[in-house]
Write a protein that binds this DNA or RNA. Structure first.
Lengths: 231, 231
DNA sequence: AACGTATGTATTGTCGACATTCCACAGTCG
DNA sequence: CGACTGTGGAATGTCGACAATACATACGTT
C-alpha cells in the first residue's frame, strides 16, 4: 500500500472497492427485511429479541435497533412489554398502499412532463421486462418492473418523493411475495409499460397519467385470502 | 378500592384517569422533537448521546432509541462513529416538502369529493383561524391552520395518507419555526380557507384542487437565508 | 519540509445484567 | 360458583461498562 496514490491516480484498482464497516444492526435489519419481503416471515409472526439474539449470535442491542429500523419501514409493529411482530396486512392497507403509489407515480409523471425530462432510459427496463416475459421468468420480470418504476420516480428529480416511494414499495414487495402468484399473463404486464414511455416521450400528459393510473389499479387487484393470518 | 366496580359502574371517579407508562425513549424523543420543531435546536446542531444522557439523567439506551425515532421522523441524521445532528435543511428539501404536501392535500380533496364526504367540520377550524387572525395571535393561527389541514386529510379516510402527511408536516412545522415570521397578513392567510371548504361542499373539484394548490404554493415561498447554518 | 506513523480524544457500537411490565393461571375467600 | 388476589413466566425497558471506529494532532524518520 504505497506507490500510486498521488492526485491523478485513478487507474482503477481491480476489485479493491472501498470497504465499509456495516453495523450489526444494519446486517440484522437487512436479513430480517429480506425474510419479511420474501414472505418467509409472514405477517403476524412474532419477533423475540432474546431468541433472535441467540440465533444470530449477537446481543440484544443490535437486534432492538434493527427491529426499530423495520418499524420505521412499516414492516414491524411493537406492543410494549408484550412483543414485536411482523405487521399484519389488512385488505384496507393493501388498497391504501396501491392508491398512494398511484399518486406518487402520477406526480412523477407530471414533473417529468413539466421538465421535459428525456425518458429514453426507461426503454432499457421495458426491454428487460419483455425479455423476462418471453422467457416466462417471473422473478426477473418483477425485478425489471421495480427497476422501471424506480427509474420513473428517479427521473422526477425529487429526492423526497423517491424516498417516500421506496418506503412504500417495501410493502408492495411484501404484498407481491405473499399473494399467490396469480400468474397473470406476463407478456401483458410487460406490455403495459412501453405505452407509458411513449406517452411521456410525446408529452401527452393526459394519456400518460391515465395509463399509469390504470396500470397501478390493475396491480392492486388481489385476493384478500392470502393476508389473513394474525397468528 | 373495592365497592363500586361492577359491570355498570361508571359513576366517574374524580380524577383517577387511566395512567399510562410512557417509556423514557418516548419522553426523550418528545422533548427533543419539540426542541427541534420550535427551532430551539437548529439544523446542524449536534446531538451527543452521553451529554444528553447526563443532562436528562437517563442512560444512553433510551437516548439512542429516541434519536432513532427522530431519525425516522426525518429530523435527525447519523454519521457513524462521528455524531448525530439535527438534519440541515436545504432550499431544495423545503421546496420538495411543500410540493409533496400539495400532492397529499390534493389527493385528500379528490377522495373527499369522490366519497361525497361532508366537510362541515372544517368550518370550525376556519372560524378559529379567523378569530386568531383578528386577535393578531400568530401561534393560535398556526395551530388552527394545522388543525384545519389535519382534519382535511382525516376526512379523506386514508390512514396511510394521514400517517404520511403527519410525518411530512413535522418538517413543515420546523420550517415555519425557523423562518423569520414574515408576517404576511394573518387575515389573508385565514381567509384562504373558507373558499376551499365551499368548493369541497359544492362538489366543485377543479376549483377545490386549484385553491389548495395555490394555497400550498403560496406558503412555500420562503427566504433561503434562514436555513443555511450547517454547524 | 514531506511523508508516514503513532497516539489521544470524542463518539458511537456492542455487550451482559438487572428492572419493569404485562398476562395467564392458579389459589382463596365470600 | 364467582370474583378477587397473588404468583410466576416471558417479554421488553433500562442501565453501566467496555470495544471499535474515525479524526486530529503530534511525533519521528527520511
Amino acid at each position: 500500500m504505497s506507490e500510486a496514490k498521488s492526485v491523478l491516480a485513478p487507474p482503477l484498482p481491480p476489485e479493491i472497492a472501498p470497504i465499509h464497516n456495516v453495523p450489526l444492526r444494519v446486517q440484522v435489519a437487512d436479513r430480517l427485511r429480506a425474510a419479511i419481503l420474501s414472505g418467509r416471515l409472514r405477517p403476524g409472526a412474532g419477533l423475540v429479541e432474546t431468541a433472535l439474539a441467540d440465533q444470530m449470535n449477537v446481543s440484544r442491542a443490535p437486534i432492538r435497533e434493527a427491529i426499530q429500523i423495520l418499524e420505521n419501514d412499516g414492516l414491524v409493529e411493537t406492543i410494549a412489554y408484550k412483543g414485536k411482530r411482523v405487521k399484519p396486512l389488512t385488505a384496507r392497507e393493501v388498497a391504501e398502499t396501491y392508491s398512494l403509489r398511484e399518486v406518487f407515480e402520477v406526480m412523477a409523471a407530471r414533473r417529468i412532463l413539466e421538465n421535459k425530462t428525456p425518458v429514453d432510459v426507461l426503454n432499457v427496463h421495458c426491454d428487460a421486462m419483455m425479455a423476462a416475459a418471453e422467457a416466462d421468468d417471473f422473478e426477473s420480470l418483477v425485478a425489471a418492473d421495480e427497476a422501471f418504476h424506480h427509474a420513473l420516480i428517479h427521473l422526477a428529480d425529487h429526492d423526497l418523493l423517491l424516498a417516500s416511494w421506496k418506503n412504500l414499495y417495501l410493502r408492495i414487495h411484501q404484498i407481491m411475495a405473499l399473494r399467490n402468484r396469480d400468474e397473470r399473463n406476463l407478456t401483458e404486464v410487460a406490455g403495459n409499460h412501453p405505452p407509458i414511455v411513449e406517452a411521456l416521450a410525446s408529452g401527452d400528459a393526459e394519456r400518460a397519467i391515465t395509463l399509469i393510473s390504470e396500470h397501478t389499479r390493475a396491480l392492486a387487484e388481489f385476493d384478500p385470502a392470502s393476508i389473513v393470518d394474525t397468528q
